[in-house]
Simulated assay, not measured.
Amino acid sequence: MPTLSFRTVASRAGLYILFLAGLMQAVLMVDARHPVAADFSETSLTEITQAALLFLCTVLMLIIRQRVGVLRNVSLLLAAFFAISLVRENDLWLDTYLFDGAWEWLVVLMALPALLSVLRSRRAFLEEFSLIANSLGFGLFAGGFLTTYVFSRLYGRSELWHALMGDHYLRIVKDAAEEITELTGYSLLLFASVELLLLARRLRDRRLLEAG
């Protein structure tokens, strides 16, 4: 598998750090210092950015599958995963403006075809997975997944924040902690998607060289 130099990894890490720093500054200026009160509702910058990051992740996976033409099964499964997460993040709007339970139907409609396709090509999927298992992209994906779908849920439990703040419990503090943690996780997933796209391009170029 194509490897990365220390200089390349360090430069990308610097860009990712700058991205996170800018993101947190924006959250501070817009949501935390909201003119009326701190706002981490469905219309907050934090929530909108979460949706935007998931959308970008989905697009990057589709580019890998359709344009780069390698890791087709892995990218399909990840595209479905990101798209489902995007739908779940916007469940309130879908239930309000479409119909109650709309997001659940959309999840089923996206998940089933992707899973069936990967199951039919499971041998190719496992071969592709072996190409990314030790990559920077997969490491970032694992970190983002654990941060967003495991840690943020545990960290955002009301019981924890009631225990920490006691009689001074403020719901906005709990919401801010949970939503910002999720935003961090989604950022890691975006970084993972970028790295997987770059890896896919390197794999494609190597195959073209070998074929030539």
Rank of each mutant, 00 (worst) to 15 (best):
T46E: 08
T46V: 15
T46A: 12
E47N: 06
I48E: 13
Q50G: 15
A52K: 12
L60W: 02
L60F: 04
I63E: 07
I63F: 08
Q66P: 08
V70M: 03
R72A: 12
N73H: 13
S75V: 03
L76Q: 11
L76C: 10
L78K: 02
L92Q: 15
L94I: 00
L94M: 04
D95Y: 11
T96F: 12
L98S: 11
D100P: 05
D100K: 15
G101Q: 04
A102S: 04
L106S: 07
L106I: 10
V108E: 10
A111Y: 04
A111D: 00
L112P: 03
P113G: 01
A114H: 01
L119D: 05
R120E: 13
R122M: 14
A124F: 06
L126T: 12
L126S: 12
E127A: 15
L131R: 14
L131S: 12
L131M: 14
S135C: 02
S135R: 01
G137R: 06
F138Q: 02
G139L: 06
L140D: 06
F141A: 05
G143P: 09
G144P: 06
T147D: 00
T147V: 06
F151M: 09
S152Q: 03
S152H: 01
G156T: 03
G156S: 03
G156V: 03
R157K: 15
R157C: 10
L160Y: 11
H162T: 13
H162P: 08
L164Y: 13
